[in-house]
């Protein structure tokens, strides 16, 4: 492999925070175009590569919103390392399904789940420092870091993701026109 050419290949990292991996599945949905993609980018940290730490990257795709402290740490890691940060899918963009807990009080939630819910005897709210603490509300990622691009959809279609990435890689301003732009 030619190292000089290789260095020019943009690096792509992806992660799923408070999401359902649906957006990642959609990324795989670009089918045989995946081969083109692998030709054109190198994957860094991603569930697809199992790399756990993000190195300096060109593009970071973030699926899912923020529901706990760890989500925020990972998001910060992505923001630090990625030149362009992309919110991928509804949950990253407005909190999505997990954010529908936002009208409930976190304390009451925890209490009910671990202490007072049906069938619970002698329960305890886990306090292991290894476990990330939940946030009082689930938040979209743009409320915590600057986000450069957004790909809406639940999940965004493979076509939408492909269009976005190829626009970006070809040096065009990414644009999802109708009908690729979808919120559902």
């Amino acid at each position: 492999m030619n190292a000089a050419v290789d260095r020019k290949k943009p690096r792509l990292a992806t992660t799923s925070l408070a999401g359902c991996f649906g957006c990642h599945t959609s990324l795989l949905d670009i089918d045989e175009r995946l081969f083109d993609l692998v030709e054109r980018v190198d994957f860094d940290r991603s569930p697809l590569t199992d790399t756990k730490q993000c190195a300096s990257c060109d593009i970071g795709l973030v699926e899912g919103g923020l529901c706990n402290a760890e989500n925020i740490l990972v998001l910060h890691e992505f923001r630090r390392n990625c030149k362009l940060l992309v919110a991928l899918g509804a949950c990253a963009i407005n909190g999505g399904l997990p954010a529908q807990r936002n009208h409930l009080d976190l304390g009451q939630c925890l209490q009910e789940v671990y202490l007072t819910g049906p069938g619970i005897v002698g329960g305890q709210i886990p306090n292991d420092p290894e476990l990330p603490l939940p946030l009082d509300k689930v938040r979209p990622i743009h409320e915590v870091v600057r986000v450069d691009y957004f790909i809406p959809g639940c999940p965004p279609s493979g076509d939408a993701i492909w269009k976005f990435l190829t626009d970006l890689l070809d040096g065009r301003t990414p644009r999802l026109g109708y009908p690729l732009l979808h919120f559902d």
Binding site: A87, I93, N94, G95, A99, N102, H103, K137, R139, P140, H142, E143, V147, Y149, F150, I151, P152, R175, L176, G177, Y178, L181, H182, F183
Partner: peptide
């Protein structure tokens, strides 16, 4: 929102109850 290519709600959410 589609017509005007709104990709993100942009502002902090109020998340009203």
């Amino acid at each position: 929102a589609y017509e005007l290519e709104m990709l993100t709600p942009h502002f902090p959410h109020f998340y009203p109850d």
